[in-house]
Nucleic acid binder design. Structure first.
Length: 271
DNA sequence: AATCTTACCTGTAGGC
DNA sequence: TGCCTACAGGTAAGAT
């Protein structure tokens, strides 16, 4: 569910409030995608230094070790001085001197994993293959274009794969391709420099705009304070099958690519 | 190596 | 408090 903007907005919502906090207790609920990897008790007494983001992962840096958190398809985080009693989908609570960080995740595709450092085998397995950060200065165009060139798969699926550029999920992949005027089915390797330049800029713009707006139109996403219906950005094509294109009024088309829905305008995205 | 498919799990919407 | 199917923001693991 959460793509890069939702994860980043979540991070910004609690990083300053949790920094410096001492972990007082840990509560785990049902199993998530992976086990925590340590006895929860061993986290007690640790201090939270800061929270960083890599792709769709949040890295909660402790004075010793770090927690990798992923929200999967349906996860959301809350942070508050006091939270209500844990519900059936609350699967991880980090109780600290400054408040409780809670992961709610109905589908449990998310995860909280402890590693000693980013070089640990599990951290490398999860983070090692990730592509460039689209909102960083390091999002180099030539590296981006070179990444596309070596993939014969449809461009939509290359964006989703996350090994060239991270953070673009199913919604923003359709949105970015619309903004760049590129047909989602085009082989990535066949995208020339002019179109690659447009796509590079479109990915940045779509994600940056969503972060500014506080995320996308996710129907059941809650922000760090537990409020729903918080995200404002209107989708241009995603979820709008049959509705008129906002640019040319041609009906938006929906298709399946690798078991995922793709939306595009057949007139604005001809190639 | 690249690519495609499967699997994980729960909730919801729509058709019957 | 109906039942069945399809689909939903992600991504690792297995198969080809």
């Amino acid at each position: 569910m959460p793509e890069l903007p939702e994860v980043e907005v979540t991070r910004r919502g609690f990083v300053d409030r949790i920094a410096g906090a001492r972990i007082e207790a840990v509560r785990v609920g049902k199993p998530l995608r992976w086990a925590l990897g340590v006895d929860p008790q061993t986290l007690v007494g640790r201090t939270v230094r800061t929270v960083r983001r890599r792709g769709k992962y949040l890295l909660v840096e402790l004075d010793e070790g770090l927690l990798l958190m992923h929200l999967g398809m349906s996860g959301s985080l809350r942070f508050d001085a006091v939270l209500p009693a844990a519900g059936s989908h609350d699967h991880f609570d980090l109780l600290t001197s400054q408040g409780t960080l809670r992961l709610n995740d109905p589908r449990r595709f998310g995860a909280v994993v402890h590693v000693t450092d980013e070089g640990a085998p599990l951290a490398v397995k999860l983070l090692g293959g990730l592509g460039m950060e689209p909102l960083d200065d390091g999002f180099d165009f030539d590296a981006f274009h070179a990444g596309l060139r070596r993939r014969k798969t449809a461009i939509k699926q290359v964006l989703l794969a996350g090994d060239v550029v991270v953070g673009v999920g199913n919604i923003y992949a359709s949105e970015a391709l619309f903004l760049a005027g590129i047909r989602p089915t085009v082989a990535a390797s066949r995208i020339g420099r002019p179109r690659a330049l447009r796509l590079h800029a479109a990915v940045r713009e779509i994600l940056a705009r969503a972060v500014e707006k506080g995320g996308s139109t996710l129907r059941d996403f809650s922000n760090i304070d537990g409020q729903r219906g918080y995200f404002q950005l209107e989708a241009t094509v995603y979820g709008r099958a049959g509705e008129p294109c906002r640019v040319c009024a041609t009906p938006i088309r929906q298709m399946r690519q690798g078991q995922r829905s793709t939306y595009f305008c057949p007139n604005c995205q001809k190639y």
